[in-house]
Structure formats: C-alpha cells, structure tokens
Amino acid sequence: MPDHYEVLGIDREADDAAVRQAYRRLARTYHPDVNDSPEARAQFEAVQSAYETLSEPLRRQAYDALTARDHEQRQAEEIRERMRRIREEREAKEAEELRRRAEARRMDHVRPTFDEHEYRALRADVDEMQKLANRGELAAASLLAKRILEIDPRQADAYAVQADFALAQGDVRAAATAYAFAAQFAPDNAVYLRQYEALKIGR
C-alpha cells in the first residue's frame, strides 16, 4: 500500500490546510497540462490518489487505522538504524581512544632494567601467575598480574591475565582494553590481537 503522506511530503499529523497546500504544490509540477511525460503522469496519479484519501476525513481515518502498524514498524526501523550508526561511531571513537592510550603508554614506559636477582624474581612471579591462570584461579592470577605490572608495565602476559579475569566477570570493555595493551606490548602475539578484535566486535 502506498504511503500517501510520503507521496505528498507531509507528516501524518498534517492538518487539512497542509494537505491541500501539498497537493496544489505537486499538481503544479506533475499535472498533465504542465508536464506530459509518462513519469509525471504516474506521479500525478499517486498525488491525486493521496489527496483524495487524505482530504476526506472518514477515508483518512480508515487509511490511518489500516497503515498504523506499517508506520510504527518504519519508525522502529529508523530508530534502530540511528542507534546502529550511533553505536558504530561510539565504537570507532573507543577504538581510537584505546589506540591512543596504548601508544601513550608505550611511549611513557621504557622497559625497566633489572639486576639478575630482580629479573629472576619477576620471572618467578610471571611463571606463578601463568600457573594460577592455567588452573583457573583467575582472581589470584589477576592480583599477581597487577603486582607484576607495577614492576614492569610492559608485561603483555600480565595484561592478558587481567583480560581473562575481566571477561570471566562479564566486563567485556575492561577485557578489550587489557587485550589492547597485551597486543601493543607483544605485537608478534596473534592470539592477543585476535582476542582484542573479537571483544571489540562483540561489545
């Protein structure tokens, strides 16, 4: 069924005067006396049909009742489309912010230098963290990861553990952020990048 309001270019709330004004404006363009093209004839017939329906109160009331559901569905689709665009714009901004923050963190932190004792202690903590994570003790592993990052803020594995813990808690945003840092500090680790991309898409 044609949308008579769309044909006349008016809102569904338009009054009788607006209906007449729209009809006269379009008739001056598409009436056969001023435009003899086949396209204009077809358009004028649509305009004439729309005017005949909307200018008569009872016919308009019946038409509105018949098309109300279609109108509501179109409105809902338009709202969903607007929300989709807003979500995509927000996600693009968030991705850019993550990239900017990761780059700033990379530039701000130079990998610390450790003596042999400190290095062995750090490696022991990393090994213990990974063992805890492998056993599914993510809360304990995440606490140890936090301590490791306070010592060496470029430890990609520690970010990955924090990401897994955040994901287990249902915090997808925090997990995506942590995996972004993990991928930043371990650019050769394809797993971290895939995890970040998957979480970014799923948000």
Rank of each mutant, 00 (worst) to 15 (best):
D15A: 04
D108I: 00
V172F: 02
A190M: 11
G170C: 06
F165H: 15
E91N: 07
T67H: 13
R25C: 05
A76W: 00
R111N: 02
E39S: 09
Q184H: 10
R90A: 14
E89F: 04
M1P: 03
Q43H: 11
N35K: 05
M1R: 06
D115A: 02
D127F: 06
I86F: 01
R25L: 11
R12V: 09
P112W: 05
F181L: 13
Y192D: 08
F181G: 01
L58F: 07
P57E: 08
I148G: 10
Q21T: 06
H71Y: 12
E45I: 04
A166C: 07
D125E: 09
Q195M: 10
D33H: 10
R85E: 12
F165K: 12
P187N: 04
I151V: 14
R111E: 14
R105W: 04
M107C: 02
R154D: 00
E78K: 14
R154S: 01
L149Y: 09
A65N: 03
R59F: 06
Y5H: 13
R85I: 02
T113L: 11
R90Y: 06
A27T: 06
Q48T: 08
D70A: 15
T177Q: 14
R173L: 11
F44D: 06
E81P: 00
Q195G: 06
P32Y: 08
A50P: 08
A102R: 13
E78I: 06
A158I: 10
V19R: 02
A174V: 05
M83S: 12
E197T: 03
A139L: 13
V110I: 09
D64R: 10
Q61M: 11
E116P: 01
L98D: 11
R120I: 00
Y30H: 14
A27M: 14
I79N: 07
V47F: 01
L132D: 07
Q61E: 13
K131Q: 15
A62F: 08
H117R: 15
T53Y: 08
V110A: 12
P112T: 08
L122M: 13
E150Y: 07
R85C: 01
F181E: 10
N134C: 06
R59G: 06
R99Q: 12
D11C: 05
F185G: 05
F44E: 05
F185N: 04
A180L: 03
A175E: 07
L199M: 01
E45R: 07
A158W: 10
R203S: 05
I201A: 13
P153G: 02
E118N: 04
P112D: 08
D15C: 03
V126I: 15
D108V: 00
E52K: 15
L143V: 10
A175D: 04
Q21G: 01
L143D: 15
D152W: 04
R74V: 09
I10P: 05
A163T: 04
L144A: 09
N189F: 02
L193R: 15
L199K: 05
D127R: 13
A160E: 04
I201L: 09
L193G: 01
Q184K: 15
S55E: 07
E89A: 15
D157L: 05
H109Q: 06
R105V: 01
A163Q: 09
S49Q: 13
A102M: 10
E78W: 03
A65K: 13
R60I: 03
A174D: 09
V34N: 05
R41S: 13
A124H: 04
A145V: 06
A68M: 03
Y30T: 08
R194P: 00
H109T: 14
A145P: 14
M129F: 08
R90F: 05
